[in-house]
């Protein structure tokens, strides 16, 4: 229920930002009776209506919240731990992308995969190292050399 309220608040915020941004579009109405703003304004209105609907759904669903609270809190502690781990993966991926054309595909991808597999495929050092190295080289050959996809070369290339 709390998440639904957060969704409601964020969606309303989004609608407000969207309306503001729409108002910023300069409009020269020549030949086009609607101009570039009309459709976006309509979308904003529908989004606000959807928020009203969501609010109604939240109010309607209220009578049955009382689930076992202990289980829920233990669950949420566990959930928080998972969220941190997923957050870590996201940050690590963002860093990978940031380095992507700086250090090149081969260097970044090997290191990126190595770290991920070490964390999520724990203990299997040999398999992890072999996968990271051979996947990176194999995919580079397949995509950059055979399929002609442009990948950044950077530090290591051939």
């Amino acid at each position: 229920m709390l998440t639904d309220k957060i969704i409601l608040a964020l969606t309303l915020l989004l609608a407000a930002v969207y309306f503001y941004a729409t108002a910023q579009i300069p409009s020269l109405e020549i030949g086009d009776p609607l101009g570039p703003k009309a459709f976006p304004i309509l979308l904003g209105v529908i989004l606000v209506l959807a928020c009203v609907l969501l609010a109604v759904e939240i109010i309607r669903a209220k009578p049955q919240p009382a689930v076992e609270k202990d289980a829920a809190s233990a669950d949420s502690a566990e959930n928080a731990k998972h969220l941190w781990q997923i957050g870590g993966v996201v940050v690590w991926t963002a860093f990978y992308f940031w380095m992507f054309d700086r250090a090149g595909y081969i260097a970044t991808t090997t290191v990126y995969l190595l770290a991920l597999t070490i964390v999520f495929n724990r203990g299997k050092w040999l398999a992890n190292i072999l996968t990271s190295v051979f996947f990176t080289i194999g995919s580079y050959v397949l995509f950059a050399k055979i399929l002609g996809v442009v990948l950044p070369t950077g530090l290591v290339s051939f």
Binding site: F97, F100, L113, T117, F120, F143, L151
Partner: peptide, 20 residues
């Protein structure tokens, strides 16, 4: 194929896909 390896590889393939 261990899930940990598989999921990591999908992320790397996604990077190639988008960058290309």
């Amino acid at each position: 194929i261990p899930t940990g390896i598989l999921l990591s590889l999908i992320l790397a393939i996604s990077a190639i896909g988008v960058y290309s």
